[in-house]
């Protein structure tokens, strides 16, 4: 595990928040995913050693939650809502637009390594459907045109880096 020093210190700190070490498993998983972007294969063993557990105990948790990723994703995570309101108002078209813009498929890393497009369940903004969440930022009423505009923006930001 190649974690940043600040992640490591956060991890050591968060373990002290709980009466039993095992309870710190979810926060630890989140911290590692924030740091690396996904949970590499050796996460289970690393956390198990850290919390005096067996690796299988950690793997059970990782595979239980869809929010934990076991494979790398692009630098930006485009989450398109596909629950009823968004689906009715064109969420699938929005998603297809993102896929086309970045020459990628659902759940895959785009060839330029910039984005991963995913469907997600309700983002709790049905009034402004269809909605898209890019990393932690919510974008409302994202039709195909706005999807193109957002894609351009992502590419522009990528160029500045």
């Amino acid at each position: 595990m190649n974690l940043k020093p600040e992640t490591l210190s956060k991890i050591d700190e968060v373990i002290t928040h709980y009466p039993t070490k095992r309870s710190a498993m979810l926060p630890l998983l989140h911290l590692i995913q924030e740091d690396i972007g996904y949970l590499p294969e050796d996460t289970s063993e690393w956390i198990a050693a850290k919390l005096d557990l067996q690796p299988i105990n950690v793997l059970e948790v990782i595979t239980f939650y869809p929010m934990f990723r076991q494979k790398p994703i692009g630098r930006r995570h485009v989450k398109v809502c596909r629950t009823l309101s968004c689906a009715l108002l064109g969420g699938y078209k929005t998603c297809a637009a993102f896929e086309k813009e970045f020459h990628t498929h659902l759940g895959e890393v785009s060839p330029d390594g910039e984005v991963t497009v995913d469907f997600v369940e309700c983002l709790a903004s049905c009034g402004t459907a269809p909605v898209v969440m890019i990393d932690d930022e919510l974008h409302e009423k994202v039709d195909v045109a706005k999807a193109k505009q957002l894609s351009d923006q992502i590419r522009a930001e990528a160029k500045q880096r």
């Binding site: 299988i56 793997l59 239980f64």
Partner: peptide
């Protein structure tokens, strides 16, 4: 886990995909 203290089995995935598995490599 309780009798032999050899905790290698567990359920991965969830819902109707839940699968009894031995930890990979064990």
């Amino acid at each position: 886990k309780e009798i032999v203290k050899d905790d290698v089995l567990g359920f991965v995935d969830r819902g109707s995909y839940s699968t009894l598995t031995c930890y990979p490599g064990k």
